[in-house]
Computed example of a mutant assay.
Amino acid sequence: MDRQPTLTGSLVRLRPLVEADRDALFAVASDPLIWEQHPAHDRWKPDVFAEFFDDALAKGGALAVEDTRDGTLIGSSRLQNYDPADGGSVEIGWTFLAREHWRTGVNREMKRMMLDHAFVHVAKVVFTVGEQNHRSRAAMAGMGAQPTGLVEEHDTPTGRVRLIQYALSRPA
């Protein structure tokens, strides 16, 4: 499975994330309000973002999200944790977008393109969402993803974080 495809829709283009994207992506990620419901709510800090970005490059599957109108980098997502066993599965996640692109259809289009690409190769797509991330949980419900249960729980400097897994199966 190609975890770094180039996919183009009417609103966004997804392409492999590269080192040269670091500064432009940090400019998007440096908005603390993007992360307020996210378990890693301090990802707007330069050192925390640098670790996130380095991890994205190291693991592969990271995608840059560009606005099709002008090519501006407006966010990122990943196709990660690919497992070819039992029909195959992959995780879609680590997604964030500049706030001016929230509620514009960008996230829906981006996820639809990623799901269409993934379902050519796998039978199941999983998502992991912080329990307090109400925006992402609403998005999961909107796309028909079903919760499969608690997958991780750990303490952070600002409190206990609970992550919930959701799954979608390949349409028949």
Rank of each mutant, 00 (worst) to 15 (best):
T6H: 09
L17H: 03
L17Q: 09
L17F: 04
D23G: 07
A29S: 06
L33V: 08
W35K: 06
R43V: 00
K45R: 11
K45E: 04
K45G: 01
A50E: 09
F52I: 00
L57A: 00
G60V: 06
V65S: 01
T68P: 00
L73V: 09
I74W: 01
S77P: 08
N81F: 11
G93V: 12
W94H: 14
L97C: 12
E100P: 08
N107R: 12
N107K: 11
M113G: 08
D116F: 07
D116W: 05
D116Q: 15
A118W: 00
F119Q: 05
F119N: 07
V120W: 10
H121D: 08
V122S: 12
K124F: 04
V126T: 11
F127E: 09
F127G: 02
T128H: 08
G130H: 06
N133P: 07
N133Y: 05
R135A: 13
S136E: 08
M143W: 07
A145K: 02
P147V: 10
T148L: 12
T148V: 14
E152G: 11
E152K: 11
H154K: 14
H154F: 15
H154I: 05
P157S: 10
R162W: 08
S169W: 12
S169M: 12
A172K: 07
A172E: 09
